[in-house]
């Protein structure tokens, strides 16, 4: 029964990511990124090996291990003119929204990065695919934004508990033209990019928001 439930949730996760996850790992080893995740934005040093491990394993729901969005609040109507910060927490870990990060992410969206920022960004900051970095130890989160018509509007894999869309990512979100956007997180605990037996993945509470017109 348990496995049935897990299977059901797992397949809903997969359908959210599109149906073409056949996991043919023929390109493995040569550092070739699975084309089915080539759209994913990697942040906070998250790696594609870990994401593949997460996608390969069916997610379950568990209120203590799944995530909840802290910002924006469910049903929020958002001003599309500048990116908002998405924040979340695991289970009951924290009832408070963290202070809006005054970190690089926010600033990057608005002005040209400094040399230091570019150097750091090149190794750890925002990366698209090809994220063969330090193996992940600890939690990482696969954030999927979707609309009725586009199940993969924007996908992000991060080790952080916040995400500030880049200008490009923000344009994807705002460019959908009306209608609610749903965001959902599948999280897992990794051990050197692999998910141990008790490490999930867990499907969090979805949230949705709209842009003010």
């Amino acid at each position: 029964m348990l496995s049935l439930a897990a299977g059901a949730v797992g397949s809903s996760l997969l359908s959210a990511c599109g149906d073409d996850h056949s996991h043919s790992h023929d390109g493995e080893g040569g550092g070739v990124v699975d084309p089915s995740i080539s759209d994913v934005v990697f942040e906070g040093g998250a790696t594609d090996e870990a994401l593949e491990a997460l996608i390969a394993k069916g997610a379950t729901t568990d209120a203590t291990q799944g995530t909840r969005f802290l910002t924006p609040t469910a049903g929020a109507v958002i001003d599309p003119s500048s990116p908002v910060v998405f924040t979340w927490a695991v289970g009951q870990a924290s009832g408070r929204a963290p202070l809006a990060p005054r970190g690089r992410g926010t600033r990057l969206a608005r002005r040209a990065p400094s040399l230091v920022e570019r150097v750091v960004g090149a190794t750890l900051g925002v990366r698209t695919a090809h994220a063969h970095g330090t193996p992940i130890d600890g939690r990482a989160y696969f954030l999927v934004f979707r609309t009725e018509s586009n199940p993969r509007l924007l996908r992000v894999f991060t080790t952080r508990l916040d995400y500030t869309p880049s200008a490009e990512a923000w344009a994807k979100l705002t460019g959908e033209g009306g209608g609610p956007i749903t965001a959902e997180i599948t999280g897992a605990i990794f051990e050197q990019n692999r998910i141990p037996q008790d490490g999930g993945p867990w499907l969090g509470e979805a949230t949705s928001f709209e842009f003010a017109v």
């Binding site: 979340w88 408070r96 970190g103 600890g138």
Partner: peptide, 14 residues
């Protein structure tokens, strides 16, 4: 990193 509590680390520590 394991507990998923966003208030645990300051922006500076992150």
């Amino acid at each position: 990193n394991y507990g998923g509590d966003p208030t645990a680390l300051s922006a500076s520590a992150l």
